[in-house]
Design a protein around this nucleic acid. Structure first.
Length: 477
RNA sequence: GUUCCCAUCGUCUAGUGGUCUAGGACGACACCCUCUCACGGUGUAAACACGGGUUCGAACCCCGUUGGGAAUACCA
């Protein structure tokens, strides 16, 4: 039988990393088994569901590359189907109309809590013979079995069982005529022939209710796999105060989707000691049974490391694609200067995020304003002017067509030898001169990418600056 | 309260009764490399929540305790 999985978010907000991991696991399982992955939007709660949230979720799914084979299906478009089944249930006596008012319900609920009982519907209308006028409002409840147990084998947790006595008759159709979640999922998973339900562990408690509905319907019961939740860096439940929670926020922060997915797959799943997985490896090696049962804390430091691994190993062309967003976001006009691919190649090793990379790239495309104060203080010494003069003398002899790292790199050593000083005394003033700052890639490639004309101009500028600085100091003394 | 789920270094994990004086990764620290920042390399510190069983033998199996989490909605 074909494996069919699904991801069924409710559009009440953006896609967060926990949802993304669940989606990833569901997607991987389908791909691993050459099955189908279905996307369904669970929007039966019309109060809280919004179009912007739907758009945000779809955008995040596309960005991560978790492509779906069918859907997106919307539950709000399937109300006729749900109501048809509810009517059938009503006819067969497997569901019943409940006329209890909200006030009555609340009162009984409060009494149960006061008695320290588990609050649940008491079945007041289940066997009631009370007469009701046709226009009296009612909701529909599912007749849950009163006795026995519901057992199921969870693919990640093993056997789980609940006593039916713990469950109550849940509402499947509200007074306003709209069906509710626990009913809709069952109908949808049934209609969409879902074979494996991969979802968050918060649904474990819903599973026995849903199984009872499957049974009442005579529908096949799918396999279930309940994935644990993701905690924040501090081990507390993930929330806004943890900063990045939305998947798209990670795009904005400069993470590659490949890296996020790799990080996420390893968070709660492992294959020996392996840390980095290509998509194909993930698909080939993934299995629901290896998913860890306990919740796991999100660790941004490790994500950064993974991201750096991908920035270094992915084709520069691919990284450059994602870098475009950052450059535009920072307003850097990269049309005049090195290509983004060259930039990526030069900066890959020292960038943990694309945002960092973009921020470090300004001097390749724009003139810098001021020198980095700390770098100036640390590296501009009394002999820096001489070092720059000597550098310039050699650099001027290098023609435009030979302005490449291999030719530029030895300049520092030559001047270092001439002056009989450590290379830092030459390389650093030169670096600050051409970039305005104390950090950059290797000086040869840095100068190559900045270009001959710009470099010489900046060196001139810096020599002027150093002369001025020396003059000021002399004056003060 | 009740039901259900969970429990190995700070974090993610390997480990499915002996090969565990518990392995890897991130992070931390130290050293090496070095024109900066990084990358990389080497090394150090760092964990089986607790208590009972079962067994010749338990991180691994069972029970309990403790601690976390989820559900208990006319939300999903």
């Amino acid at each position: 039988m074909e494996v069919r999985t699904r991801f069924a978010p409710s559009p009440t907000g953006f896609l967060h990393v926990g949802g993304a991991r669940t989606a990833l696991y569901s997607w991987l399982y389908a791909r691993h088994n050459n099955g189908k992955f279905v996307l369904r939007i669970e929007d039966t709660d019309r109060e809280r569901s919004t179009q912007p949230a739907i758009d945000a979720i779809l955008e995040a799914m596309k960005w991560t590359g978790l492509n779906w084979d069918e859907g997106p299906f919307y539950q709000t478009k399937r109300f006729d189907r749900y109501n048809q089944v509810i009517d059938e249930l009503l006819e067969k006596g497997l569901a019943y109309k409940c006329y209890c008012t909200k006030e009555e319900l609340e009162k009984r609920h409060a009494e149960q809590v006061a008695r320290k009982e588990k609050p649940r519907y008491d079945g007041h209308c289940r066997d009631s013979q009370e007469a009701h006028s046709p226009d009296e409002p009612y909701c529909v409840r599912f007749k849950n079995p009163k006795e026995g147990k519901v057992k199921f084998h969870d693919l990640v947790r093993g056997d789980i069982e609940f006593d039916n006595a713990e469950l109550d008759d849940l509402i499947i159709r509200r007074t306003d005529g709209t069906p509710t979640y626990n009913f809709c999922v069952v109908i949808d998973d049934w209609d969409m022939k879902i074979t494996h339900v991969v979802r968050g562990e918060d649904h474990i408690n819903n599973t026995p209710r849903q199984i009872n509905i499957y049974k009442a319907l005579g529908a096949p019961i799918p396999e279930f796999a309940h994935v644990s939740m993701i905690l924040g860096d501090d081990g507390a439940k993930l929330s806004k105060r943890h900063g990045a929670v939305s998947v798209m926020q990670y795009r904005d922060d400069g993470y590659l989707p490949e890296a996020l997915l790799n990080y996420l797959v390893r968070l709660g799943w492992g294959h020996g000691d392996q840390e980095i997985f290509t998509m194909d490896e993930m698909i080939n090696l993934f299995g629901l049974d290896a998913i860890s049962k306990s919740a796991s804390a999100f660790n941004t430091e490790k994500l950064k490391w993974v991201n750096n691994q991908y920035i270094k190993s992915l084709p520069p062309k691919r990284v450059a694609e994602e870098l475009v967003w950052q450059m535009n976001h920072l307003g850097i006009d990269y049309s005049k200067g090195p290509s983004l691919e060259e930039l990526v190649t030069a900066l890959a090793e020292r960038s943990h995020t694309l945002r960092e990379m973009a921020e470090q790239s300004r001097y390749f495309y724009e003139e810098y304003e001021d020198y980095d104060a700390a770098a100036v203080k640390k590296w501009f010494k009394s002999d820096s002017l001489e070092a720059l003069e000597r550098c310039k003398a050699i650099l001027e002899q290098i023609p435009e067509n030979e302005w490449v790292a291999d030719k530029l790199h030895p300049v520092v050593e030559q001047v270092g030898a001439q002056m009989d000083v450590k290379l830092g005394k030459v390389g650093m003033p030169l670096r600050i001169a051409v970039t305005g700052r104390g950090t950059s890639p290797e000086i040869g490639i840095t100068m190559q990418l900045i270009g001959r004309e710009r470099c010489l101009k900046r060196i001139d500028r810096t020599m002027e600056y150093l002369k001025q600085k020396a003059a000021n100091q002399a004056q003060q003394q």
